[in-house]
């Protein structure tokens, strides 16, 4: 019981510190903006640990963070293998193929107005569909290996990426296009010098959305069949063994991978579109 009391005391302390920070003179500083969410997260973790211990929750329902950390540390080589199988082979290859294909199709769509009028409504429609549902079919076609996961990812990222890129390519003003015409610029020149740079913020928006979708696609596709490796496989088999520490470790891996993936794309965006209004400080 003392654990539970202590948990709430800790909560109050964390909240008080945050209240001070948010209301104090340093509230606009970068350090406070970083510290406040970190304190909040740490308080949540500590409360989780204390409440699980204090209320004696069975570890098959919710293991405490310390146990998850221990499982994680003890199984780094297995988890690394899962990471390579799911993230690097399945998600990343599918992500690259799907996004590249979508950008190429977007260029075609942009060139031919008929295609735009035909494909764009379809693309908007497809982007809202539960495409994860194609996973069982694609696993049947491409086998249990990473190829089927990459195929699911390609399908999942294609339409959001297409819609975003097409929107980006049409995001130039008539003045800008007229200027290119007065230079007698050809279509490829206009594309390279004006429209692709102007489309970059939209393309990166699509890339960011798709980074999450790619991981979801790769993990869910593994529920339908996989080799004896991979995060989705690890999650579904460890649940069968009621090894919740391992399940949570796999989730930690996918969370870290997802955040890192997104962060990497955001970093690239900052380097590539430093001129855009949204990147200015």
């Amino acid at each position: 019981m003392s654990y539970v009391v202590f948990a709430f005391v800790l909560w109050a302390i964390g909240f008080a510190i945050n209240l001070q920070l948010a209301g104090g003179p340093a509230q606009r500083s970068a350090a406070a903006r970083l510290a406040i969410p970190l304190i909040f997260g740490a308080t949540l973790l500590a409360m989780w640990e204390l409440l699980v211990r204090g209320l004696e929750v069975p570890t098959v329902i919710l293991p405490p963070p310390s146990q998850i950390g221990a499982t994680f540390a003890a199984n780094t080589s297995i988890l690394w293998g899962d990471f390579v199988q799911t993230i690097l082979k399945g998600a990343l290859s599918g992500y690259l193929m799907g996004c590249a294909a979508a950008v190429l199709v977007a260029l075609l769509v942009d060139r031919y107005d008929y295609l735009r009028r035909g494909l764009l409504p379809l693309g908007n429609f497809m982007a809202a569909l539960p495409i994860v549902g194609t996973a069982p079919i694609l696993v049947m076609w491409f086998g249990f290996g990473w190829q089927s996961k990459a195929a699911v990812v390609v399908l999942m990222v294609f339409f959001p990426m297409l819609v975003n890129t097409v929107a980006g390519l049409s995001d130039t003003s008539a003045m800008q296009r007229d200027l290119m015409r007065t230079y007698a610029a050809s279509w490829p020149q206009t594309l390279l010098k004006l429209r692709l740079p102007a489309a970059l913020p939209f393309i990166f928006n699509g890339l960011k959305i798709c980074s999450t979708l790619a991981l979801i696609g790769a993990i869910v596709a593994e529920f339908f069949g996989s080799p004896t490796q991979g995060l989705g496989f690890r999650i579904s088999t460890s649940i069968g063994q009621l090894n919740l520490g391992m399940v949570w470790s796999a989730i930690v891996v996918s969370a870290l991978a997802g955040t890192a993936f997104y962060g990497l794309v955001a970093l690239l965006e900052r380097r590539a579109t430093f001129w855009h209004a949204s990147q200015r400080k």
Partner: peptide
């Protein structure tokens, strides 16, 4: 303001996590 500063970053981070992976658990 406290909630904004403490919860919002986590809400954004959580969007980058493949949440569906939690489903079977």
């Amino acid at each position: 303001r406290v909630m904004d500063l403490s919860v919002m970053p986590w809400a954004i981070v959580s969007q980058t996590i493949p949440i569906v992976a939690l489903a079977p658990m």
